[in-house]
């Protein structure tokens, strides 16, 4: 194989114990994701895609099975190693943007660099570059409440890139945005993934995502339904659009 697996999920199951009943959310998932790819995880709500997504991001631990990031089993990591992973290796983008409301756009972008121990001046300089990169020049002093949804998500994208992560995890990044703004964010993510060789993994049910994805993983009822490559996709999206429109 020319490209190595940046993420490998092996036989992962996840149960949620709700006291009286146990819900089996993931029922054995196997998945390999190669470096530099743009992956979409698709599935109806309740299918377990968010859960799978949280496992990949090291935000949640599987009931059984293993998740490897760069061939390291993340269940074996201690708190400091896990924090390092979240800080340096993974960039998160959330559906609800999750910017820190009391901080300006620039401070939000530099926060992960501060956590990584990068000196202030360097962090500020890089933060400004990143804000320019996502098209927010001159907005660095604005608080999240003074920015539109699309602009907030751009700040979040810049923040996700702060420590040059290998992986960007985007959980429904367009879920709270209108059509055009959502498309802008998708284009931005695709561009960054291409230019910076970042692996983008996004959980979504936004069909606009399909056009830019290298691979789409369909989740249904806690299992992988099918994995499609890009060439199979275009036909599929055409079909989807016809039936919905």
């Amino acid at each position: 194989m020319a490209t190595k697996d940046v993420v490998r999920v092996a036989e992962v199951t996840k149960d949620f114990d709700l006291g009286k009943i146990v819900v089996h959310v993931l029922k054995g998932i196997n998945l390999e994701i190669q470096t530099g790819h743009y992956i979409s995880i698709m599935g109806p709500s309740g299918s377990g895609k968010s859960t799978l997504f949280n496992m990949i991001g090291g935000l949640d631990k599987p009931t059984s099975g293993k998740v490897f990031i760069d061939e390291v089993d993340i269940a074996q990591l201690d708190a400091y190693e896990l924090a390092w992973l979240r800080c340096r290796k993974i960039g998160y983008i959330f559906q609800t943007f999750n910017l820190i409301p009391v901080m300006t756009a620039l401070e939000n972008v530099t926060l992960p660099m501060t956590f990584a121990g990068i000196p202030n001046d360097t962090a500020n300089e890089k933060g400004m570059d990143l804000l320019n990169l996502v098209g927010l020049d001159g907005r660095h002093a604005h608080k999240p409440s003074e920015l539109s949804g699309g602009q907030q998500q751009r700040v979040a994208v810049a923040r996700a890139l702060a420590n040059d992560p290998a992986i960007i995890l985007a959980d429904e990044p367009t879920g709270n945005l209108d059509l055009n703004t959502g498309e802008d964010i998708i284009t931005l993510l695709k561009k960054l993934s291409k230019e910076r060789k970042v692996t983008v993994i996004s959980a979504t049910h936004d069909y606009k995502m399909l056009n830019v994805s290298d691979k789409v993983v369909w989740i249904r009822d806690g299992r992988i339904d099918k994995i499609q490559n890009r060439d199979e996709l275009n036909i599929q999206t055409g079909g989807v659009e016809k039936t919905t429109g």
Partner: peptide
Amino acid sequence: REIGTMKCLGAL
């Protein structure tokens, strides 16, 4: 949410 976000970004 703020605390959770900070933890995702690598806060100990």
